[in-house]
Design a protein around this nucleic acid. Sequence first.
DNA 1: TAAAGAATGGACCGATCGGTACAGGAGAGC
DNA 2: GCTCTCCTGTACCGATCGGTCCATTCTTTA
Lengths: 187, 187
Amino acid sequence: MARTVTERADILPLLGEVFREHGFEGASLAHITARTGLGKGSLYHFFPGGKEEMAAAVLNEIDGWFEANVFAPLRADADPSAAVDDMLERTDTYFRSGRRVCLVGLFALGDVRDRFGAAVAGYFARWRDALAAALTRAGRPAEDATALAEDAVLAIQGALVLARALDEPAVFGRAIERLRGRLQVRS
Amino acid sequence: MARTVTERADILPLLGEVFREHGFEGASLAHITARTGLGKGSLYHFFPGGKEEMAAAVLNEIDGWFEANVFAPLRADADPSAAVDDMLERTDTYFRSGRRVCLVGLFALGDVRDRFGAAVAGYFARWRDALAAALTRAGRPAEDATALAEDAVLAIQGALVLARALDEPAVFGRAIERLRGRLQVRS
DNA sequence: TAAAGAATGGACCGATCGGTACAGGAGAGC
DNA sequence: GCTCTCCTGTACCGATCGGTCCATTCTTTA
C-alpha cells in the first residue's frame, strides 16, 4: 500500500481545522479522514486513544504555540510594554483577524469542557496571569493589572464570538485596537 | 395513553437547557426525550421540523425575552442610563451570574451558525444597536456610543466564555461590574 | 354518548457513529 | 534476497443517530 510518510505533527493543524469547524462531537471520523487523507488505520496508529487523544494533542499544540510566542515573552521580555504590543499583533495574526475561531474557547462552552477542563482552564489562566505580570512590570499597580488582564483576555474571546456571530470579522480588529489603547502605559 | 397536557411553550426552557448543555449536534433525541419526558411522537407533533425547528423555537423565545426585557427599554426608556443599569442587572440574572452559557453565542461558534445565521446575527446586532442608541440618548457622541456598545456586548460574551473555561463564575460578575463603570455617564 | 381531533409512546427504519481487526504493502537493516 | 517493523486501507462491529409511522388514549364538542 502507498506509504504517505506522514509525521504525527504534520496532521495536527488539519485536525485543528476539523475540530474548529465541527466541534468535538461534530468532528466525525469521516470528516477527519476526508480532511487528513488518512484512513482510520493510520489515524488510530498515530492516536491509539481515538478522537479524545487527537483533540488533546491539538490542544497541546495550540497551548505550546501560545506559551512560546505569547505567554513567555509577556512574563520575561525585557520590554514589557513591547511584549504587550506583540501579544496583540500575534493574537490578531493567529486568529486571522477574526476569521478563525478559538478552539479552546469553543471547547470551553461545550460539554467537552469536562473532558479537557484542565487544559482549557490552564490555557486561559496562564494567558491572564502572564499578561498581568507584564502590566505589573510596566508599572501598573497590581490590582489594576489583574483586572485589565482579565478584561483583555475576555475581550479577545468575546470579539471572536461576536465577529463570527455577525459574520463581520472587522469586529475583532476594532476590539484589538481598543485593547491597544486600554493596555498602553499611561504617560 | 397518559396525556400530559403540555403546552409547546412549556417545554421550550427544557429544550434550551439540553441545547445549552450539549450544543445542537450533541443534543440527541434521546437526551431531549429524557429531559422533557416527552416521547418522540409528542416531540414531532409539536415540532414537525424536528431538531431544527426545536432549536429555532428556542432561539426565538430567547430573542423575544431579550427584545422585551432588554432591547426595547434601551431604545425607548425615558431614562436611558437607568435602562443601561437595568440591562446589566437583567443580563447578570439571566446568565445566572456566569453559571449559564449563552446559547446564541454557542451556536455562533459552531457550524450551526450557517443554519441559524440570521437569528444569531440579528440578536447581537439588535443588542449592540439598542445599547448604542441608549448611550447616545444619554449624551454620548455617536462614535463613542457605537464603540462602547460593541465593546460591552462582546465583553459579556467573552466573560461567559472565560467564566466557564476557568470554572470561575465570579469572572462574569467582575466583568459586569467593570462595564457598569465604563458605560456610566461621566458627570 | 358518539364522533373527531389532539396528544402520546414506542417499534421500527436506514444511515452514520466511534472503534477494532487484520491482511498486506513499503522501507530499513542485513 | 530476506525479514521485521512500520504504516495503511478497509471490512466489519455494536451502538446510536434523526426521523417515520401507527395504534392507542385522552379531551373536546355537540
